[in-house]
């Protein structure tokens, strides 16, 4: 992406969320995007995921220009290439764990079976539970299974552990790390929790709508070794 900006609102109430972001992301990387709240990380993630269009600048995914994509092209991009994990899980409450994943694999071109995806996040014994019957960590792992089941090229995670305690958070991060390792998915984790930087291939510090610094880790720390 080059010179990406995003403004919300108009006139005096206008808010600048992105102030010209230049960034390249590569296949198979695990990137942690660090920044305080209000720094524009979520806005950036929305652009990356094709949920929203930038005000100016260019954003390319492989050979596709997402900056000028139509609604239909964005939908296709999301359907084929992107998996999302949100802070508040956002599961469909009326569907079981297996069905929440199945809902997405139904419309994907080359998905893994829902059971396999849930197996990868360690939820094989809870396939037929409804979200309300699962703990927060379990719900988040269902959300990860849902995101990886279609074998996306890009996995975008917005504060995936934000609503969880340390222990549960680590289980979730392990699931993400495993998906990244085994499926070779570009994984972007947004967080304000600096501890998580240690598990990344690359750490990008973000504030005031800009990339402030980048850092490459020689080795990725195992999520189990993290404490916060």
């Amino acid at each position: 992406m080059r010179g990406l900006t995003k403004f919300y609102g108009e006139g005096t109430t206008q808010v600048r969320a992105l102030a010209g972001v230049d960034l390249d992301l590569f296949a198979g990387e695990l990137v942690v995007l660090l920044g305080p709240s209000g720094s524009g990380k979520t806005t950036l993630l929305n652009q990356l995921g094709g949920l929203d269009l930038p005000t100016s600048g260019t954003l390319r995914y492989r050979d596709t220009d997402l900056t000028h994509a139509t609604e239909a092209e964005l939908t296709l991009y999301r359907r084929e290439s992107v998996g999302f994990v949100f802070q508040f899980y956002n599961l469909i409450p009326s569907l079981t764990a297996r069905e929440n994943v199945g809902l997405i694999t139904e419309i994907a071109t080359n998905p893994m079976p829902a059971e396999e995806a849930l197996g990868m996040v360690g939820l094989s014994p809870r396939l037929d539970h409804f979200p309300a019957q699962l703990s927060g960590g379990e719900q988040q792992r269902v959300a990860i299974a849902r995101a990886i089941a279609k074998r996306p090229a890009v996995l975008l995670c917005d504060e995936p552990t934000g609503a969880l305690d340390v222990h549960t958070g680590i289980v979730v991060l392990e699931a993400l790390e495993r998906a990244n390792r085994e499926l070779g998915t570009l994984t972007v984790i947004i967080t304000h929790n600096a501890v998580m930087a240690e598990m990344a291939d690359r750490v990008i510090r973000f504030s005031d709508g800009r990339v402030q610094s980048e850092q490459h880790n020689a080795t990725r720390a195992a999520p189990a070794s993290l404490r916060w």
């Binding site: 995921g49 949920l51 609604e71 239909a72 939908t75 296709l76 991009y77 999301r78 359907r79 084929e80 992107v82 998996g83 999302f84 956002n90 469909i92 409450p93 809902l103 997405i104 419309i107 849902r146």
Partner: peptide, 14 residues
């Protein structure tokens, strides 16, 4: 609202 957003985020068409 959120459910609709999720469906859209995962690529369901309007």
């Amino acid at each position: 609202r959120e459910q609709i957003a999720i469906l859209k985020a995962f690529g369901f068409t309007n």
